[in-house]
Every structure is written in structure tokens, then in C-alpha cells.
Design a binder for these strands. Structure first.
Lengths: 242, 242
DNA sequence: TAGATTGTTAATCGATTAACAATC
DNA sequence: TAGATTGTTAATCGATTAACAATC
């Protein structure tokens, strides 16, 4: 991992992208060509790995080094970065900070969306405690629930009653609802959400929310699904030994 | 959704697959052809949807109905099922129970693996409370932790001290470790895990575990990654409106 | 039987890899 | 300059879709 600062690798972005022809090419691509689905799905992992490198004061990284670190091919990494118009420099590699910043832009981390969490249970606490929101540029503005938990503190929020949900979201320009409620509460919550300007749902309930029906951006997390990928792999590994 | 039982759709599997040539073809395929990666990743969702259909007493489903329900093409569903040797019947569709059973077999749900959970925090409680293990055929045998939480109950388990981990795993033939510990504890835990017969790790810690280095089947869950897919989509949707 | 729906084939589409000229 | 490493092209590989004969 090449970590030393060198005169050949200027820290300021403006110095790197000074050649007009390259800048022109990059712009054209970002406007015309959409980023392939497969690349998008890899971005969050790049994001995490690059942040760790940045925190370890690594200034630059080559596609070969990153490939080794992430268990993929250098070719794929260069292809991916090319899709993002995240240009490196021949002979030197990529600037860790520049790459991290570019991925943040593409993924909307720099948009600084605001969110509210519905359901003050264990999964909500996990997300808050692990700073899942902060690290992805999302500001958690409030936690809502019904019944007994209202008024109790959840880290730096106090649980509010769901009756205040619509009003709060309008006043605070909330973009994202994080749904951690029980399945049977979900249809009712969807009606409330539609009364606000919320445009995205991060759904941890066991009830799938359809992006088409809701007309919103939706990610259904399905917490248990990856356990089946694990048991599949364990079973297949076993078969291969016979 | 066609739900009535009919004489043309016998309930017993043996009656469906009675034609020798079809059975022969199925066997040949399951031995020779591996299931594509993309199909495997869709199986957990099929599994959930089929269980819901089964619980709603739906006996059979056509590729068209399932496609509508899941937002995919009928063609893809037939192609997927064909990979699993999960044969339907022309003119009638697929038996819900048969399909569910076949997917359970392929994914190792019927293997009845046993697991222990390390780290008695919020994420562990979420998994237990939502019956994530039971529903996928995994038996949770114990919860381990260090310090103050030892001895306290977590649903039907009592938290045990990590010092008893290796002994317990050997005695109870544990297959899977569910890692919900803090990142800095992970390297130490990996050493403990290697002293047992554990073959799979379901990792919820913020520290990635490499399948190659550990020599085990590993799923790194990366809880926050899907939030970035949501903010990406919200950002892109916004761009398209301009 | 007639209608419905399968499993499979071939065509299309998208993703990954290998190779290398360009160039820092 | 010489070595390193990029961005891009072309080749390969894998996944999805459309079409339809087979058949329940």
C-alpha cells in the first residue's frame, strides 16, 4: 500500500484534473451513460473500504492493491471506477480521498437526506448505535412509536407518538422513513407516509413494501435472507467433498 | 390465484413425478449442472413468498401468478425453477408445497444446522425475536457474551460466558457462529471458532471476515450498505425529473 | 376436447476478464 | 528515462427474455 505523499501526486483535485480533454470526456460520460446495476451494488463496499484506508492515512491506492484487499480483479475495479468517471493516474493509482468523495456523490451521501425511524425496538437501536446513518450522510431527526415507549429516550432522541408523525415530517422536510414496525402496522404507516413528502423507505419489517404500489424508492432489507445463502453454501461445500 | 384442490393435481409428490423419463432427466441435471449464482440469490425471496402462499392455503401457483406477485417475468421464474429441477405441470402450474420443499432442500434449510450467537446485544435480540433462525431451519443453541450480560436471559436462552464457548460447541456439534460482537473482538473470536467444528459464520459485526483467510463459509451482512442503495436511487430519480 | 401453462431453445442483453497502448 | 499503472477495447462468460412445441 503506497502511503507516502509525493510531489507527483498532488493533493488538490483541481491539480489532477487540469487537462481539458480528459475533463471534457468525463463530463460527457456522466451525462450520457448510466451506471450499470452491478456496479451500483458494489459501491457501498468500496465506500467502506476506502473510508478505512482514509482513516489509516493511506493517500493513494492502485487497482491491484484494492483488488487484493477486496478479493476481486484489478480489471473489474478499473472498469467500475471508469463508470463513475473516477479517474486515477497512470503509474500512480487512485487518490483515496477523491475516490471516496466521488462514490459519496454518486450514491447521494453528499445529499444529506433526513430520516425518521418508526418503531423504537431492537433493530432501530442497532442502527443508531452503530452510526449507520451518520456514516452514510443521513441525518436521523426523530424516532416514532405507539404506546408505552413514547417519551423514553433512544440515544439522543426521545420517542414521539406516531400521531405527531405527519406534522413533524412536513415541518422538518423529512426524506426517508426507516420502517422498523410490526408487519400488521405497515399498511397504516404507508398511508401516513403518503401524506408527507417522504420519497424513500428503508424497510426492516417482515412485510415487503412494493416500490410500484407505494410510488416511492424502497429497499426491503429481509434480514434473514442471507442466512439461507450461508446454509446453501455450507451444504454445497459438503456435497463437493463426496 | 387458483386455490382449489383438484383431482388433476395430486397432493402427494410421488404421484406427480411418476413418469420415469422425467424423473431420470431431473436426477441427471441435479448431479451434473450447478445452479447459477443469480438464481441462488433469488431463492430466499421465493422461499418467503411461497411460505406466505402456503400459510394462506394456496395449493398451486402458475409462473404468471408468481411473476405478478413478485414483480418479475414469468419466463425467469420458469427458468429458475427448471434449474432447481422443481417441475410443475403443463396447464396447472406448480405445487406451492412442493416448490417450498424443493427450495428448502437446495438451500440447506432441511439440514437443520445448529448455531450459537456471540454478542447478546440489540441485533442478536432482533434475530431471535423475529424467529429468523426457526424459519430457516436453524436451531439456536446458545448465546455467548463477556462481562455483565452473562447469566441474564435472552428469550429462551441464558447468556453464557465466552470461556465456555469451545467446550459447548464441541459437545453440541455446532455448525454456525452468528457474530454480533464489536469489531475489535472479532480476531479473537475467529481463533476460538477455529478450535471448533464450526463451518459457517453469519457476521453482523462491522469488521469484514474473509472466507479465504478463515477457510469457512462466511456471509458478511453489512447492515448499512442497503441504505446507500436507497439514497442512490432517490438521487437518480431526482436527476431524471430535470 | 380446448385452454392453460409448462420446460426448453435461441436470441438478446449485460457483466467480467484479458490485453495493451497511452502516459504519469 | 524506466517502471508502474491507468482507461479502454474486444473477447468471453453469464443472465434474462421471447417464443413455442409439448402436454396436462
Amino acid at each position: 500500500m503506497a502511503g507516502r505523499k509525493s510531489p507527483e501526486f498532488p493533493a488538490k483535485e483541481s491539480e489532477i484534473y487540469k487537462i481539458p480533454s480528459v475533463a471534457g470526456k468525463a463530463k460527457q460520460k456522466s451525462e450520457r451513460q448510466r451506471i450499470p446495476e452491478a456496479v451500483i451494488k458494489r459501491l457501498p463496499r468500496y465506500f467502506r473500504v476506502l473510508r478505512e484506508l482514509f482513516n489509516s492515512d493511506v493517500l493513494r491506492v492502485s487497482s491491484g492493491e484494492l483488488a487484493e484487499l477486496m478479493g476481486m480483479t484489478a480489471s473489474q475495479i478499473r472498469q467500475d471506477m471508469s463508470c463513475l468517471c473516477a479517474f486515477g493516474q497512470q503509474g500512480y493509482g487512485y487518490g483515496v480521498k477523491q475516490l471516496y468523495t466521488r462514490i459519496s456523490e454518486v450514491c447521494g451521501v453528499s445529499c444529506r437526506y433526513s430520516a425518521v425511524l418508526i418503531g423504537a425496538g431492537d433493530i432501530g437501536k442497532t442502527l443508531i448505535k452503530n452510526m449507520i446513518f451518520e456514516q452514510r450522510g443521513v441525518k436521523l431527526k426523530a424516532v416514532f412509536d405507539t404506546d408505552r415507549s413514547v417519551g423514553t429516550p433512544v440515544y439522543d432522541c426521545t420517542v414521539m407518538d406516531i400521531s405527531k408523525f405527519v406534522g413533524f415530517c412536513e415541518e422538518n422536510a423529512v426524506d426517508i422513513a426507516v420502517v422498523c414496525a410490526a408487519s400488521d402496522a405497515v399498511p397504516g404507516l404507508l398511508k401516513l407516509i403518503k401524506q408527507t413528502d417522504i420519497r424513500g423507505i428503508w424497510n426492516f419489517s417482515l412485510c415487503e413494501i412494493s416500490p410500484e404500489e407505494s410510488g416511492l424508492s424502497v429497499i426491503n432489507t429481509a434480514l434473514g435472507d442471507s442466512l439461507m445463502l450461508l446454509t446453501y453454501e455450507m451444504t454445497r461445500e459438503n456435497e463437493n467433498k463426496h
